[in-house]
């Protein structure tokens, strides 16, 4: 029965999926490191060979930390991670701390959006990267890529073994995109709420709550008198005589009482 076999082949390759069913096809996927998210993504992780759009509501809410576990896993395999037209400097010590091998990181800066799209396409086509992180707006962040340009990237991604992440502004969620997976990210009370805008499979009603690698360790949280509950006046004022944490840069013990009395007068001169 060759015709039946052809259909099962197609289903396996992930080019065809049945509505209402997640496409657990032959698409290679890399676990996101979050069990709740893995469960809802076709293939059980960030899918390779398709375009994934991330639409964070605001930068800094954890959009990169959400990728951290997957990128660390790829990096441990010795695969390359290309950052194309990033909006700021990727900070080397932080990447290292997240488990990325800096020797396998390629930073590509571009002058305009056209170059950024071109570079993302090249990186996907080259088959050299484990993950391609692209900010397709270019350095200006104004020019939004059109559907045709995104379609080019999706086609480039289809032949590629890489994870392809595009970071786009949240307003892009309202426009059509050829990307196979689109996630809207928002911070809800310190957790990252992931709303799946589009995936191969049925829609998801509720957003998922993720807790990416905690940034603020409990032991090192802010002293009580500086905490948000304190009167607002304390925040803007110079927080000069602070009890110093034991592991701060100068690695001195906390100031003695005598030193603390001395400190304000020295500050006045300095």
């Amino acid at each position: 029965m060759p015709s039946v076999r052809a259909l099962t082949d197609l289903l396996k390759q992930g080019f065809v999926w049945r509505a209402g069913e997640l496409a657990h096809g032959g698409l290679p996927a890399v676990s996101t490191g979050f069990a709740a998210l893995d469960e809802e993504l076709p293939g059980g992780g960030w899918p390779a060979g398709v375009l994934t759009e991330l639409l964070p509501e605001h930068e800094g809410i954890g959009e990169l930390r959400a990728l951290g576990p997957a990128l660390a896993r790829l990096s441990a395999q010795g695969r390359w991670i290309a950052w194309i037209a990033p909006p700021h400097l990727p900070y080397a010590p932080a990447l290292q701390a997240a488990g990325l091998d800096l020797e396998r990181v390629m930073i590509v800066r571009t002058r305009n959006a056209t170059d950024a799209l071109w570079a993302i396409e090249q990186a996907l086509q080259s088959n050299a990267c484990g993950a391609v992180l692209g900010w397709p707006g270019g350095a200006s962040r104004t020019a939004a890529p059109g559907f045709a340009q995104l379609r080019r990237l999706q086609i480039a991604a289809e032949g590629s073994p890489a994870l392809a992440f595009l970071f786009r502004p949240p307003q892009a969620a309202h426009t059509a995109s050829p990307a196979a997976l689109r996630l809207h990210l928002q911070s809800v009370q310190g957790e990252l709420a992931v709303r799946i805008v589009k995936r191969r499979g049925g829609p998801l009603a509720r957003p998922l709550l993720l807790r990416p690698a905690p940034v603020v360790p409990v032991a090192r949280s802010i002293p009580q008198f500086l905490a948000p509950a304190a009167p607002a006046g304390r925040l803007g004022a110079r927080p000069a005589p602070l009890p110093l944490a034991a592991n701060h840069a100068v690695d001195r013990p906390a100031l003695s009482d005598a030193a603390a009395r001395f400190l304000p007068s020295r500050l006045a001169h300095g």
Binding site: W80, A92, L95, V108, A119, S126, A128, C129
Partner: peptide, 28 residues
């Protein structure tokens, strides 16, 4: 899963169009 493509080739390609300084790595 080994990369089939050549990263050096990709870096050269990007450099040829974007400029030498635009493509680089990082070190701590």
């Amino acid at each position: 899963l080994k990369p089939a493509g050549d990263w050096a080739q990709l870096a050269e390609r990007l450099r040829a169009r974007l400029g030498e300084q635009q493509v680089g790595g990082l070190a701590a």
